[in-house]
Simulated assay, not measured.
Amino acid sequence: MGKTLAEKILSEKSGNDVCSGDITVARVDLAFVQDTTGPLTVRQFREAGFRKVSDSLRAAVFLDHAAPSPNRELANDHLFLREFARDTGCFFSEVGDGISHQIVAESLARPGDLVVGTDSHTVTAGALGAFACGMGSTDVAVVLDLGETWFRVPESIGISVSNHFPAGVFAKDLILYVIGRIGADGATYQALEFGGEAVSTMSISQRLTVANMAIEAGAKVGLFPSDDMTREFLAEQGRIEDYRPLAPDEDAVYSRKIDIDTGR
C-alpha cells in the first residue's frame, strides 16, 4: 500500500513502517521557539533538569512576535531567551531579523524534515515538503533535550488542484475556499496534502501562504510535494544541497479526496 507524504516522513524519522493511526516516536530535525511562548519552554526545560540541547537536532530562538518589546516583562523575556541561546548554542534571530516562519522557510527547513515549534503557524514550512507542526511549550522543551517526540500518524486529506489561477484569484483564495468547504475543524489532527496540475506551477511564496493557514482548518500539517519549484527556491537561497524530491505514492490512501478546479 502506498504512502501519503505524512506517512513517508514519519516512517523515515521513526525508522518504522508507519501508517495513519499508528503511534510512533520520531527524530526531530528542527525545533524552534519564539518570544511569546519560548520563555515558558525554557523554564520547563530548566525545571526538568535538562542542561543542553540534543546534538541530534537544530534548535532556534526567535525574537519576532513582540519586537520591539512593548513592556518591561517582555523585555526581560528577551534577555532570558538571549541568555539561553548563548548558553546552548542555538541559532538565534534578533529583534528586526524577521519573522520566524519566513526565516525557517528561507534558511532552516528542508524537504522531508520533521519540524516542531511553539507556534501554531509552524505549519508554514510544509510548503517545502517538511512535516512541520506546532506543539506546546512543555512538549518542545522535552524535544530540545531528547531530540525526539511521539506522534499519532495523521490521516491525510488529499486536495488535488487543477487548471490555473485566473486574474484576481490568489493562493489565499484557495485555502480560504478549502476552509470554507470543510469547516474550521474539518481537518482536525489530519494532514492537508496538496497536489495536482495547479500546485506544480505554484511558487513557494504561494505555497507558504496556503500551508500557513492549514491550521485554520484544524490540520496538524499542511504539506506540498518537493519538486522543481522547491529546487528553484532552495537554489535561490543558496541551499541547493538541501533539496530532495518528495511526493506521495500514486496509490496512497487518503481519508478524503477533494478536487478543486481553480478556473471555475
Rank of each mutant, 00 (worst) to 15 (best):
G89C: 08
A127C: 14
T41S: 14
D22C: 02
A127W: 11
F32R: 13
K13D: 10
L10F: 09
A26H: 10
F151T: 05
G158S: 10
S11E: 09
S255A: 15
D249G: 14
T262A: 06
R58N: 07
G112Q: 04
A67K: 10
L174N: 01
Y177T: 05
A67P: 08
L208P: 00
H101I: 03
L5T: 02
S200V: 05
A109D: 01
F62A: 11
G186V: 07
F151R: 07
D242Y: 15
I99M: 07
E241W: 00
L223M: 10
S120H: 07
S203E: 10
E73Y: 12
A191F: 00
A31Y: 05
T37S: 15
E236H: 01
A66V: 01
V95G: 09
C133K: 06
G136N: 00
E73C: 02
F50K: 04
A127Y: 03
F224E: 02
P68D: 13
E241Y: 04
L174K: 00
A235K: 14
C133V: 13
P245I: 02
A219K: 13
E216Q: 04
A75L: 01
G158A: 06
I258R: 03
I260Q: 12
Q34L: 00
A171T: 00
S226G: 06
D251K: 14
D242G: 10
R207P: 05
G98N: 06
V104E: 08
V210T: 03
V18S: 12
K257E: 15
I215A: 15
E250R: 09
L144D: 01
F131I: 09
G238Y: 15
A214L: 03
S226A: 15
D145V: 05
R82P: 06
G147E: 02
A85S: 08
S69I: 14
P70I: 09
D139N: 12
G117F: 07
V28F: 10
P248S: 15
I179Q: 09
D29A: 12
E236V: 02
M213G: 02
F224L: 03
I23F: 13
F32Q: 11
A31N: 04
G2K: 10
D113T: 04
E7S: 03
E236Q: 07
I175Q: 15
V104F: 00
